[in-house]
């Protein structure tokens, strides 16, 4: 098992290298000299040349590439042109917000989605099942930016049930220990802050979850329906196993194997920042950071952001595969 994981991590290196290279080339091909952008339209040619030199952009492209790779190997993702802060540090500061939102919404949507999927499979073709299928499909099809705005209007602005945007309330802010506000407030026993954080998180999490619930539900339903027809389910019934246990134990464990992939992929996608949701809810996460980087033509930020997305995808794939081995004994590495 460890050998397998080690091998997969090694295999990830060329993948990440390839992505880094592609991102590097694209940035050079498609963007202007950021020195212009930074200095504004009234900058003198001298100033631009000076900054270009300072940024190392006067070097030949291959040399820039080698310098870039060298920096990456040392864990240096560069410095943001705007904030003048190391990009790695800025990403790390924002990571907890993104991860917290991602984990919260995926837990919410996988529990709800899987349970609804099982119910639909057990009550296949009933009115309830059909209604759930249509609702689920609607949920998947709703654009997140639109849904987010509608939820803000309904639940925050009109009903005043939840805060409009942001991540926390300045009055109820937990002491920063891990950066994960729910964990921090629980650690310090600050339950008021915990409740407040939950309230802030709920709308963005719901916005993300509506689509995920739909897809997890539909996926669980179809795999359950396939599994329930298998011979070993008939065997379980022939043994006299009660039907609820047939479904929840014999069928579900088999059906979950493919569902786990979908959940893992979703989580991986969210870890690199749900760009739209974070922007709408002013959620101080990685997605928002990357969007700002793109708007500002901030080389280092965009490069690192793309790399982050790639690295997270690679490792979430690995995590899903490892989990597979745990769920399905036929797969042993």
């Amino acid at each position: 098992m460890l050998k397998y994981i080690g091998k997969r991590v090694l295999m990830a290196i060329p993948v990440i290298w390839g992505i880094v290279t592609i991102v590097f080339i694209l940035m050079r091909v498609f963007s202007h000299n950021p020195a212009f952008l930074l200095l504004g339209q009234h900058a003198t040619a001298d100033k631009v040349a000076e900054l270009t030199k300072y940024l190392g952009l006067d070097q030949p492209i291959w040399k820039q590439y080698l310098i870039y790779l060298g920096q990456l190997l040392r864990g240096d993702l560069g410095t943001s042109l705007f904030t003048k802060q190391p990009v790695l540090r800025e990403i790390m500061e924002r990571m907890p917000a993104t991860i917290e939102l991602a984990v919260f919404s995926v837990i919410m949507s996988s529990i709800v989605g899987v349970i609804l999927g099982i119910v639909c499979a057990v009550k296949q073709n009933s009115a309830l099942d059909r209604l759930m299928q249509v609702t689920g499909l609607t949920g998947i099809s709703l654009p997140r930016f639109w849904l987010g705005l509608i939820l803000i209007i309904w639940l925050a602005v009109r009903a005043k049930l939840l805060p409009v945007s942001g991540r926390f309330d300045f009055m109820n802010q937990p002491k920063n220990i891990t950066g994960f506000m729910l964990i921090d407030s629980a650690l310090t026993g600050n339950w008021k802050a915990f409740g407040s954080t939950m309230r802030y998180m709920f709308l963005p999490a719901l916005t993300i979850a509506v689509a995920s619930i739909g897809s997890f539900m539909r996926y669980t339903r179809s795999t359950m329906l396939e599994v329930i027809r298998q011979d070993y389910i008939r065997t379980a019934r022939a043994k006299g196993v009660p039907e609820p246990r047939v479904v929840s134990r014999h069928a579900l464990k088999n059906a979950l194997i493919p569902v786990v992939t979908i959940i893992g992929m979703e989580l991986g996608g969210l870890f690199s920042g749900s760009v739209l949701t974070e922007t709408i809810f002013a959620w101080p996460g990685v997605g928002q950071y990357i969007v700002n980087g793109i708007n500002n033509s901030d080389y280092a930020v965009v490069q690192s952001g793309c790399m982050l997305v790639a690295v997270i995808s690679v490792f979430m794939n690995l995590a899903v595969d490892v989990l597979y081995g745990y769920l399905d004994p036929r797969i042993r590495y």
């Binding site: 011979d231 008939r234 065997t235 043994k239 014999h250």
Partner: peptide, 25 residues
């Protein structure tokens, strides 16, 4: 009926390859 199945009536099937649940020992 469930109390009779597997208790006073046992059954074995044609396909031993697929009749056992693959994810349990």
């Amino acid at each position: 009926m469930r109390e009779i199945r597997g208790n006073s009536i046992g059954m074995i099937f044609q396909e031993p390859m697929t009749s056992l649940n693959p994810v349990f020992t």
